[in-house]
Amino acid sequence: MTPLPEWLRPGFAPGAVKPRGRRGSLRPLRRGLATLEAVLGTLVSAGPDDRRDGFLRNADPRAKLLAGVALIVVATLLHGVAALGASLALALALAAAGRVRAVRIAAALGASLALTTLVMAPATLDVVTPGTPVLTLARPGGGSLGPFRLPATVAVTGAGLAVAARMILRTSACVTLALVLAATSRPQELLAGLRALGVPQAFVMVLTMTERYLAVLLRAAQELHLARLARTIGGIGFRREEAWAAAGIGAVFRRTRTLADNVTLAMIARGFTGEVRLLRPPRWRRREWLLVAAAALAAAALLAADRGLA
């Protein structure tokens, strides 16, 4: 056997390390890894959130999808703040009924609220939404700055507040409803349930396969991230960081190609000829009809109330 080189023998002391200047941080890498692991966790979790029981959990995902999408669509049609508030209340009630964990609601709703509040803050001002001033923030006093005409005042308007309230209530209701759908169903069931919305079988099959292989490719990406974290103690600079990401993406793509070829072979080996045939879904029980009817009723009531009030 070839003798070990000196530097590979135990106890060999490497020469003094020249400290490198400005080292970037590993924060982006860690953040990427965290997002990735969160997604992976949602996909393959068999955690306590999934084992909880409840009316919504036992309902057929097709019914849930129909009901959920109907309520989301209605939320985007409502104008009045009262009706929008009612739809948010309904969404939160459904989340409670579906025993969605409070942490999960808070996380999803918090992120949405933060974004919409941030985006809507300028919309409350009279420069975007004209109206009766409620609170004057600044008085530039007109005049002009280069080609731009400056407004006389910058003030929060009543109309602006109404606009912002409407947006915040609506986006919150939509996000909560979408969360109820996702948190009370297993991902593969939810995608399979799309057949009830008229999505063709082949599309449903590809969607479920996407979900299936997302877990596999995410694990590959996770390994790449971990291997990188294991070998570096700091950032490696923009250029190399970009090159690393590109190489990682390239490696995942190669995996994508090989897997696609092998899956194709596996499908053909079991008789696939190009025509997608899925297992016949179970028949609807009374619970499913009830759920869809209740959602339709609630949607109609919200819309009627909103249009009546407006």
């Binding site: 593969q188 299936r212 292989y213 899956v263 596996a266 080996a269 079991r270 008789g271 045939r277 899925l278």
Partner: peptide, 29 residues
């Protein structure tokens, strides 16, 4: 003739175990 692939990830492409078992027979019609 059944083929057991080396890579189970390639072989199991359906969303659930039940769908996996159903795939071949459904293809047979």
């Amino acid at each position: 003739v059944g083929f057991l692939f080396q890579n189970s990830d390639a072989q199991l492409f359906c969303p659930t175990v039940e769908d996996e078992l159903a795939f071949g027979p459904l293809q047979m019609g």
